[in-house]
Each structure stands twice: as structure tokens, then as C-alpha cells.
Design a protein around this nucleic acid. Structure first.
Lengths: 335, 335
DNA sequence: CTGAAAGCGCTAACAG
DNA sequence: CTGTTAGCGCTTTCAG
């Protein structure tokens, strides 16, 4: 890599003159600026980023900590993060916590050593279950800004980007009720997560408010160790009259649809299904699954915007929580 | 962040003494080492990574350039990369080329400024089609090592990690032939990619070698602008007698399976299907799709290992190409 | 208009 | 055993 010093030597000027010239300082003559720039271009000079970071105490790099990159939702958020960060001139360093508290902690520690200007994080399932948040507080205390998205913690005081999980589930349930469904099941494999709980609450609220709805709320939770397909078979056996399903995760809605079709249940005539699935599963459904669109890339984009603003402005009087709108996209599994 | 200088001041010793003590230098007395370490621990001293990078001219960071994070294969490779890099004490900076040559070029330029010690890259579709590779050559000329994986270029001289695409497709086709299939179609939506071409060649070779096989080879290519499901419907219409499908991408095999079942074709009695799909699609298939397992995380892991070795050893006499084994995993869509 | 010098945080040769 | 000094590449006063 060519350095300022090398340019300076070749031009018989000082390093500081070269530096100023490249920044088009008023102090430097037009002529010198031109000569410096010409040589810099010729030798393909690129300022050493590490040196600039050391000097400025800024890295122009964001730390991104994601629970699971194999989850398509997070992949899409990451896509949005990468795009927006690049647009704003930031690099991203990513760590995958793999739903582990320890990995998350280590990632924060490793990147906290001056490697990044701030963090974007969605916390691991284990962290959320244990409600262990000291590691995040400690980053915040070092004046490194943090933006939490999707899986957030109420007890941490920082900027957040979320979707209206409660409202989205509420609306979807309302839709099923308006279709005249009599027994609507909530299906979930993310019981432990904050977002899972909010979605359950939205469902419960809508059911509760429904006048003339006779069934009790039915929650079918599938745990990660359970056999997914067997559990769904069991659900159909246990609730032979169910005529509406709200799946609040990416997978269970699609499987429930396949199983229903296999059983000969008419969708959407006798059963409506709405999922929180991503479009990536649509090629695998027929009829096409109706879903709640979460606009994952927008969540990523918003997280970057909020974080960069916070990096530039410093600690505020109070932090902001941005809510990204969802859409109920009705396709062919609802009337 | 607490610095060496601060430790030195509090202990009334010099900065270099502190530095050496923390590295347990022979030069320093046991007593001093203990005192320094105690204070460092107490104040939670963390060496500033940027300063170390500047000094050592190493960042302990790898640049990873991926065409599309929404493609599950790449997400899995990234998972393997992240895991292995973390294990070896490296951070990863990721860029998503989004299949664009320009984005790829920019990423290499941005990270080439001393931000990373080397690159892991799978080239963009556009790059592969245009066969534009000057940007990668130029990185190599700066003595920044590059490891290419999956989508590699024959004309670039660097380390590579690939799977045996040709052999995998060859074996899978052989299997279909051994089942006694009479009309085997190759189905692909990745015609333009190097890996897509290799897989086609493996299929062709197996067909060619099959004595007593009457049908000509049949290649069904679906382009990104085509309607996937309509194209597959058209395939079944055009080849009513087809009894074997080798899908060489992640998606088309699953859709072909769904369509076949919908048409009432018995799988695997009257039709066998093998895909290059990832396990993530398996919950959406019934019968379960037989696939070629690509061991994507292993590709990521191997890429990291090769790159770090190259970073440490410097330019070799000749570069290595590592081939990751595939597995033909027979499930329920083959006999 | 240009240059010398200090310093970001760290390491390492060299001196004491 | 400990300290002084120089230097990684850059920016930024402050002198000239």
C-alpha cells in the first residue's frame, strides 16, 4: 500500500502538505493540490483505514449480532443492514450468536475493543429466556451505542426497531373472525421469544373482543425438540373442528397447509391459514399462503439509520423506538 | 476505553513495562507482572485492536463477499465461515454483491485499504457472465490473499474451495439410471453459473455412458424472469413420459415434486426426483426429497482454514484447490 | 502557502 | 529488571 510519506518523498514536499492537499485545504496552493492529486491517482493511493481509525477514534464500522443466519427473517434483515450501511459508507462486522448467550457476550467483548462504532443486535433465545442483559448494559456504559431489533428487551434503555407484533396478530385474527371462523388456533414454534409472546397476546385480545365467538383461545406451541410434522398431525386430531390457523412463525403455517391438503381439508373453504412466513416459502405452497409481511429489509435499514444517527449525535435525553409497519397480504389460503 | 498509559500512570511505571508485563515477558519481574495484571483486570483493560492493527499491519479480519445472502446455500456457507473464523480469532466483514459486478468491485476496493488480511469470495453472476476478473487480480497483486469458493474462475490463480459438482451430478444421474428410469430430465435455474454448467456436464456424461438408455438428454433451463411454476407445468406437458428428474438447484426440485403430486403422479413409483436442495426445504416436502448434500458449512470452514494458512505462509509456489465431498442422500423421492 | 512536531495506542529495539 | 525512544499512517495545531 502506498502511503502519504511515499507521495511526499516523490514530490519533495512534507507529509502534512500532502495530507492537506488531498483534503483540498485552503492553505495549499492550487498548483500543489493538483500535483499531489495527480500522483495520488497515478499510484492509486488509498488512505489507510486503520490509521484513520486510530487517529479519529472512529472505525466507520458497525457490529451486527444476529441469532441465526439460517433463519430467513434474519438473513433479510441483514440484507437490509448491509445495503444501508454500505450506502452510508460503513462496513459491517457480523457475529452469529447461534442463540447462545455466551457467544453473544463474547462477540460484544471482542468487538467492544474499538473495532466498531456501535452495535445492532437481536438477542439470542438463551439471553431472552435467562433475561441476562448485563453484557449489553456494559457496552452502553462504554458509550458505545446499541440498537436492538426484533427481539428486544424492555429493561434495556437504548434505541429499538420493532414491528408491531401485537397489532399484526390482532389484525390477522380479526380477519379470520370476520370470515366467520368458529375455532381459530394459534400455532407457534417461538413461544419463548418476546415477539412470540406479543403475537400470542394480539391473538388473545382479538379473540377476547369477539362477540359471539364461542370457542376458547387455543394455543398450540411446538418446541424445538418436538417433531414438527407429528405435532401438527396431533393438532388436527385434537381439534377436528378447527377452521382457522394463525401461525406466528416462518414454518408451521406452511406445514399446517400441506398437512391439511393431504387430509383433504378444503383450503380456504373449510380452513383459513395465515402465516408470518417469508415470501421464500411461497413457491412451496399451493394454494399460496396468506401472510403477514414483516418488511425485514426495512427493519435492517431503519436499524442502521437509527444507529448512525446515534453515533453522530451521542447520548440523547431519551431513546427512540421505531415501529415498522406490517402488511396483511391475503393470498389464497384465506377467503 | 482504558489504555496502557493509564495503567502505567496508576502504577508509576512506564508504558513499555506495562506492555511487556501483560505479555508476560521474561524481562519483567514476577511481582510487577502480577501488579500490572491485577490492575488491568480490575479496570477491565482491553488492548485497542485498531492500534495493534496499525502496528502489526494485520487486522485479524477477513473480508467475505457473497453474492446473495437470501440464498440458503450462501447463508450456510457464511455460517461455517463465521464459526471457523471466530474459533481462530478472526472477525469477518461481510459484503453482499447482490450478484452485481460493480458492487463486488467496490467491496474489494473498500476493504482493500488495510481493513482485512484477505478475502473469501464467491463471485457474482454478472461477474461470471461477463468474465470480468481484473478486480480480483488486482487484489492478488497487492499481496492480499483471496480464496474463491463455489463459483470460481478458472483463469484466476488463487486458492479455491469447491464441491465436486460434476461428480455429484454424475452419481445422481447414475442412480436414476440404475433405478431403470427411461427418460431423465435435468432441471436447472442456474444455467449461467459455473457450478450449473458442471452439473449439467455430469448429467450428460452419465447419460452418454448409459448403455441401453434410449432417450436423448433433456435439459430444462428456467431463467430468472420465467414463471417458475408455469415452466414446470410446461415441462410435464412437453415430456409426458419423463420418469426421472435431476434438479441442480435449491428450488426447482421441490416445485417439480409438488406439481407431480398434484397431477397424481406417483413418487417414487412412476417418477424419481433428486435435488441439490438444502435441508431447509425438507419440511415442505412429502414424500421427503432425495438430495445431494453439499455440506455448505464445511465449504465455509475450509475456506477460512485455507485463507488463514495463506495469510500466515504468504504466496506459495502453487495454489491449492480443495474439493469438499458431497453425499447423495436418498430419502423418499427415489426408489 | 508549507513544514515541523505532536499524538492516537501499541510494540520492540536499545540503553541503562 | 525497567525506561527511553522510535515508529506504524494519519491529522492537526502551531511556526515559519
Amino acid at each position: 500500500m502506498v502511503t502519504l510519506k511515499q507521495l511526499a518523498e516523490q514530490l519533495n514536499v512534507s507529509v502534512s502538505t500532502v495530507s492537506k492537499a488531498l483534503h483540498e485545504s485552503e492553505e495549499i496552493s492550487k498548483d500543489t493540490i493538483d500535483r499531489v492529486k495527480a500522483l495520488a491517482k497515478h499510484l492509486n493511493y488509498q488512505p489507510n483505514k486503520v490509521a484513520i481509525s486510530l487517529k479519529s477514534n472512529k472505525t466507520k464500522t458497525l457490529g451486527v449480532i444476529i441469532p441465526n443466519i439460517l433463519n430467513h427473517f434474519f438473513a433479510k434483515v441483514l440484507f437490509g443492514i448491509e445495503e444501508e450501511a454500505t450506502k452510508k459508507g460503513y462496513d459491517i462486522i457480523i457475529c452469529i450468536s447461534n442463540e447462545s448467550y455466551t457467544k453473544e457476550l463474547q462477540s460484544l467483548e471482542v468487538l467492544g475493543n474499538g473495532s466498531v462504532d456501535g452495535f445492532i443486535i437481536s438477542i439470542a433465545e438463551e439471553t431472552q429466556i435467562k433475561n441476562q442483559i448485563q453484557h449489553i448494559e456494559s457496552v452502553l456504559q462504554q458509550d458505545l451505542p446499541v440498537v436492538m431489533f426484533d427481539r428486544v428487551s424492555d429493561v434495556i434503555n437504548c434505541d429499538k426497531v420493532v414491528i408491531d407484533d401485537f397489532g399484526a396478530a390482532y389484525e390477522a385474527t380479526k380477519h379470520l373472525l370476520n370470515e366467520g371462523r368458529k375455532q381459530i388456533v394459534l400455532l407457534s414454534n417461538i413461544e419463548e421469544l418476546s415477539v412470540g409472546k406479543l403475537r400470542v397476546n394480539g391473538y388473545l385480545k382479538a379473540i377476547e373482543e369477539a362477540s359471539g365467538y364461542k370457542s376458547v383461545p387455543i394455543l398450540v406451541h411446538i418446541r424445538s425438540n418436538d417433531d414438527l410434522e407429528a405435532s401438527i398431525d396431533a393438532m388436527y386430531k385434537q381439534y377436528p373442528k378447527l377452521d382457522g390457523i394463525l401461525s406466528v412463525d416462518n414454518t408451521t403455517g406452511v406445514v399446517a397447509l400441506h398437512k391439511a391438503l393431504k387430509k383433504g381439508i378444503k383450503v380456504p373453504k373449510d380452513l383459513s391459514i395465515i402465516g408470518f412466513s417469508d415470501e421464500n416459502v411461497l413457491p412451496f405452497t399451493d394454494p399460496k399462503l396468506s401472510t403477514i409481511s414483516q418488511h425485514a429489509p426495512d427493519i435492517g435499514k431503519a436499524s442502521v439509520d437509527v444507529l448512525i444517527e446515534r453515533i453522530k449525535k451521542g447520548k440523547p435525553d431519551h431513546f427512540q423506538t421505531k415501529t415498522i409497519k406490517t402488511n396483511l397480504t391475503l393470498r389464497a389460503t384465506t377467503k
